[in-house]
Design a binder for these strands. Sequence first.
DNA 1: ATATTATACATATTTATACTATGTATTGCA
DNA 2: TGCAATACATAGTATAAATATGTATAATAT
Lengths: 108, 108
Amino acid sequence: MEKVDKKFISKRIATLRNAKGISARAMSLDLGQSSEYINQIENGRSIPSIEGLINICDYFGITLSEFFDTNLLYPIQYKELIKELNKLDSLELQKIIDIIKLITQRHN
Amino acid sequence: MEKVDKKFISKRIATLRNAKGISARAMSLDLGQSSEYINQIENGRSIPSIEGLINICDYFGITLSEFFDTNLLYPIQYKELIKELNKLDSLELQKIIDIIKLITQRHN
DNA sequence: ATATTATACATATTTATACTATGTATTGCA
DNA sequence: TGCAATACATAGTATAAATATGTATAATAT
C-alpha cells in the first residue's frame, strides 16, 4: 500500500481537476478560494486542512476514502455483505471468520 | 454517500484506541503529543491536521482510506475475512451470506 | 505581434487553528 | 484514601492554512 504524503495529495487533486476538465481558476471560484491556493496545493507547497479536503472531495463527488484509496481494497460485490457484518460485534465476527476458514481449508 | 464530519473523525479515533486497549495518555506519549489534545480530538473539540491524521493512522496500522471507509469498521478482521471469501465459489459464498443474514436478523 | 488564458512560483501578510499547558471535576478501582 | 483515566474550560503559542500581489512563461487565438 502506497504511503500517503504531501505529493500524493497534490497529484491526486491535480488529476481530479484535469479529469473534470476545469481550470484552477474556475475551481477556486466554485470552492470560494483563491486560485493561487489551488496552485499551491497542486504543486505541493501547501496541504489543505481536513475540512478543506472534505470540500474538495465533495466538489469532485468522491468520498475521502476514495480519495485516499490507491488500490481497490475489496471487491465491490462484498459491499452488501460487509453492511450485514457491521451489525455483528467483534466476537460474532470472529466466529464467522472461523466458520469460513473451516470451509475454505480444502481449497488449499 | 455518508458525510464525513468532525464527529465521525472523533468517534473513529476513540474506537480505534479502545480497540487497541490503550489509554489516551499512553497513546499521546507514543505519538509525542499531549494527552489533552487526544482528548480534544476524541470529543470533537479539535480536528487534527492531515499530517497529524497520517501519524494516527500509522499508529493504528491502517491507511487513510481505511480510516474514512465507513464500511470498514474492523479493517484488520475484514481483510482476513475477504481473503478467505475469495477462496469460495459463488454457491458457497451465497450460503455464507444466508447464514450471516440469519444471525444479523435479530440485530434489527 | 499582441491580447488572452492557464499554470507556476516567489514573497509577504493575514488569519485561523493545530496543539500545548494548566487547573478542576468526576468516576472507577485497588 | 489515593491513583488512573476521562472530560472540559480557559488561555496561550506557534504553525500553517489561506490570501494578495507581482512576475514569468507557454499556448492559443486575434
